[in-house]
Amino acid sequence: MTTIDSLWFRANEASQRAEQAYHRLRERHDAVLERERHRRVSRGRFRTLTERVERTGAPYGAHTIVYRPSGQLLLVRHEGVDLWVLPGGEVAPEEDFERAAVRELAEEAGVDADYEGLGVLTRVRITSGEYETWGVIPVFAARALTTETHIADPDDEISAARWFGDLPEDTRDREDLLAWRERELEP
């Protein structure tokens, strides 16, 4: 008798959802900086991320690069990972990626911004032992309309929101942010 491995099946379904999300984002947005990442995770974390990808196509939600004309970028301190990160998070069932990014920016930094489209699109391959799936990480670009920060994070994961000209060494995906800033903000 053949048994069906439900985690393998769900990972396959998630990969299909990620493919759909990726193509939808690429169709709607031009000249996007594309990146690839690989994350090895525990089996429990793999299951959680697979479920997220099945729902939305994105294991880590949607994020925003918020910039000032001076080139400064807004980062938030995420205590769960002990790093400076872009504002962002999970996509709620009634949201598209951009709405989720706008909501997360409001919660994590309280800054108003003019959204300009997708800035970075990352394909992240997720593995745990012999299991594999992938998802997208959409990062929208937005010009700051206000610069004073106010944290109203319902998850209490964000402890600070600050503007940086020189990005701290402990910034998640620092090289990607520097590449984006050089490409988009420097003549």
Rank of each mutant, 00 (worst) to 15 (best):
M1F: 13
T2Q: 11
T2G: 06
W8F: 12
R17Y: 03
A18E: 04
E19N: 13
Q20T: 10
Y22G: 01
L25W: 06
R28N: 09
D30Y: 11
V32F: 06
R35D: 02
R40L: 14
S42H: 14
S42K: 12
S42L: 10
G44Y: 07
G44A: 15
G44E: 14
R47M: 13
T48V: 11
T48G: 09
T50G: 08
E51D: 15
V53I: 15
A58S: 15
A58E: 12
A58Q: 07
P59I: 05
P59D: 08
G61F: 09
A62W: 02
H63P: 00
I65S: 00
R68Y: 09
G71W: 07
Q72A: 13
Q72P: 00
L75N: 00
L75V: 03
L75R: 01
V76M: 03
R77I: 01
E79F: 04
L83G: 02
P87D: 05
P87I: 06
G88M: 05
A92I: 07
A92E: 15
P93I: 08
E94N: 06
E95N: 08
F97T: 03
F97R: 00
F97L: 09
E98M: 10
V102L: 09
E104L: 04
E104N: 12
E104F: 08
E104W: 09
L105E: 00
E107L: 08
E108V: 05
A109D: 01
G110C: 05
G110D: 04
V111K: 01
V111Y: 04
D112H: 11
A113T: 01
E116T: 11
L118K: 04
G119N: 08
L121S: 06
T122H: 03
R123I: 07
V124P: 00
R125M: 07
I126S: 03
S128R: 10
S128Y: 07
E130Q: 13
T133V: 12
T133Q: 14
T133M: 15
W134F: 15
G135L: 11
V136T: 13
P138T: 12
F140T: 02
F140Y: 15
A141W: 02
A142H: 05
A144K: 06
E148T: 14
T149D: 03
I151C: 08
A152H: 13
D153E: 12
D155W: 14
D156T: 07
D156G: 06
E157P: 08
W163Y: 08
G165F: 07
G165K: 06
L167C: 04
E169P: 01
D170W: 10
E175V: 15
E175L: 14
L178Y: 09
A179N: 10
A179Y: 02
W180D: 00
W180K: 03
R183W: 15
E184P: 01
L185N: 10
E186Q: 12
